[in-house]
Deep mutational scan, measured.
Amino acid sequence: EKTLKIVADSEEEAEALAKELAEKYNLEVTIERNPEEEGKYVITIKIKP
Rank of each mutant, 00 (worst) to 15 (best):
Y25G: 08
K46N: 11
S10A: 01
E13L: 10
T3Q: 04
A22E: 10
E23G: 08
E15T: 10
A16K: 11
E32I: 07
K2P: 14
T3L: 13
L27S: 15
G39S: 08
K48P: 14
E32G: 04
K2C: 15
I6N: 01
E37T: 10
I45L: 06
E36N: 12
V42D: 05
A14D: 00
E20Y: 15
E13A: 10
K5P: 06
R33Y: 06
K46R: 06
V7Y: 15
E20L: 14
E11N: 05
I6W: 13
I45Q: 01
V7S: 13
L21G: 00
G39D: 04
A14E: 00
E13M: 10
A8H: 01
E28P: 14
R33H: 07
K5F: 15
E15N: 13
A18Y: 12
K24M: 13
Y41G: 00
K40P: 03
N34Q: 07
K5E: 14
I45K: 00
Y25P: 05
E36G: 09
E23H: 08
P35Y: 11
I43W: 01
Y41I: 03
Y25A: 03
I47L: 13
E11T: 04
A16N: 09
L4N: 08
K40Q: 10
V7I: 12
V7Q: 12
A22L: 12
K24G: 05
I31R: 01
L4K: 06
T44M: 06
T44C: 06
T44W: 12
T30E: 05
I47M: 05
L4D: 08
K5W: 15
V29H: 02
A8N: 01
A8I: 07
D9Q: 06
Y41E: 00
E1Q: 03
A14N: 00
V29R: 00
I6R: 02
T44S: 04
S10I: 01
V7R: 08
V42P: 00
S10N: 07
Y25Q: 04
D9H: 05
E11K: 13
N34T: 07
Y25L: 03
T3I: 13
I6M: 07
R33F: 11
T3E: 15
E1V: 06
S10M: 01
E28K: 09
K48Q: 14
E11S: 09
N26S: 11
A16G: 07
L27C: 14
A8T: 12
E15I: 12
N26R: 07
L27P: 01
K24H: 06
A14L: 02
K5Y: 15
L4C: 15
A14F: 01
N26G: 13
K5N: 14
E37G: 11
V42R: 02
L27V: 12
G39N: 06
E38G: 06
K46W: 14
L27Q: 14
K46Y: 15
K19H: 04
E20M: 14
S10Q: 01
T44P: 00
E15K: 10
I47S: 02
E1A: 03
